Simulated assay, not measured.
Amino acid sequence: MQRGERFNRADRVIKIGFWINAWLMVLKLAAGHFGRSEAVFADGVESACDFVGIVLTLVALKMGRKPFDADHPYGHGKVESLAAVFVAVIICATGLWILYGAAHTILDARYQDPRLIAVIAAALTIVIKEALYRYSVQVGGALGSPALLAIAKDHRKDALTSIATLVGVGGAFFGVGIMDPIAAGLTSFFILHIGFQGFRISAHELMDGQPATEEVAEIAALAAATEGVDRVHEIRARRSGQFLIVDLKLDMDPEMTVKRSHDIATRVKERIFERFSNVGDVMIHINPSDEPHEDLNRL
């Protein structure tokens, strides 16, 4: 997949989510206010918070696609993980806000009688948000984009929120008023969990944590199977936005000319690029295979 096509697909997912979220935000705020449901209105405020996350992601995708330069020799992809951290913080803050509001309502025992429009808004949100989640996670997984996967988690969080909201507003609609704030309070714990998970993954990427072991093992196996490579001495990888940056140490025949070893290293890199569209760069170090050697580093 070409670089431009990758970013175009990411843009499409974000823009679709942006406009649907806009419509749902207005719907839930109106339905919560005029339908007299604290849970649905809080759901609408939570959707408003989503806008901040989506805008941050749009900015991150635009910045992240900039090619490498003298100040950023590894590209600008890390900004996606940084945006994902901000989205996670927003999700956690929203969960705390909903939990506080629900607790306050229960302690004050000031329950409202919701109208049917609030029930319909909650049910409609579940269907739409789950569809957006599946679409976003499919594209985000294919592109290996942390920003898109963070947005996907946010869509799933909204769907879970609306399930609890529907139960609460439905129960209150049929006369059990306390169910509305209880549902909002329980939902806040789901929101906090999703926000924490998103923060943990994004922080791991910002700290150059090792990506999925299976993919790294596949890259190593492909390099080891290349003619002229005796074995893969070491492989490390880190994520930069939608791309992986791979460091390879290869053992080769010590009698090999510099040109021959260079050609083999180039072939290894070409094979990795052909097989893995999400690999942005491969840096290769060559070691002689006939003698033990100790890696020098200060990490």
Rank of each mutant, 00 (worst) to 15 (best):
R36V: 09
G144W: 04
T125D: 03
Y111M: 13
F34A: 06
D230E: 05
G280V: 04
M283Q: 10
I163D: 00
A83I: 11
A83H: 01
E215G: 08
L24N: 07
V282P: 00
E214N: 10
S145W: 01
A223Q: 01
V87Y: 06
V216G: 01
V167T: 09
D263F: 02
H104C: 12
N287Y: 13
L58P: 00
P73G: 04
D251Y: 10
E234M: 07
K78H: 01
W23E: 08
A70T: 03
V45T: 13
R65W: 12
D43Q: 07
Q242M: 12
F51N: 02
L160I: 07
D251H: 14
I151C: 09
I178F: 15
T226F: 01
D253V: 04
Q210Y: 13
G171Q: 09
G140Y: 07
A39G: 09
S162H: 10
V216T: 11
G101L: 12
A121Y: 07
A223R: 01
D263E: 15
T57Y: 00
R12P: 05
G171E: 00
K259A: 07
P73L: 03
K157G: 08
V127S: 14
V52G: 10
A42E: 13
I54G: 02
F68T: 03
R134I: 05
L166I: 11
L132A: 03
L96S: 01
L24T: 11
A142E: 15
A150W: 07
R231W: 07
F174C: 15
D71H: 13
R9D: 01
E294L: 11
F86Y: 04
F34W: 15
E234P: 00
I284Y: 06
L82R: 05
G101E: 15
V216A: 02
V137F: 04
V246G: 02
D69W: 09
D251Q: 09
I91H: 00
D281S: 11
L143V: 09
F199A: 15
A88M: 04
D180T: 06
L82F: 10
V87E: 06
F18H: 08
F190M: 03
C92A: 15
M1L: 08
L124G: 15
T105P: 11
A164F: 14
A122Y: 14
V59A: 10
I235V: 15
A70E: 14
G144P: 03
D251M: 12
V258D: 05
N8A: 12
A183S: 13
I182S: 00
D281E: 10
E130R: 03
A237Y: 02
V55F: 08
H204E: 12
V258I: 07
L132N: 03
M179Y: 00
L124T: 11
A60E: 09
A184L: 06
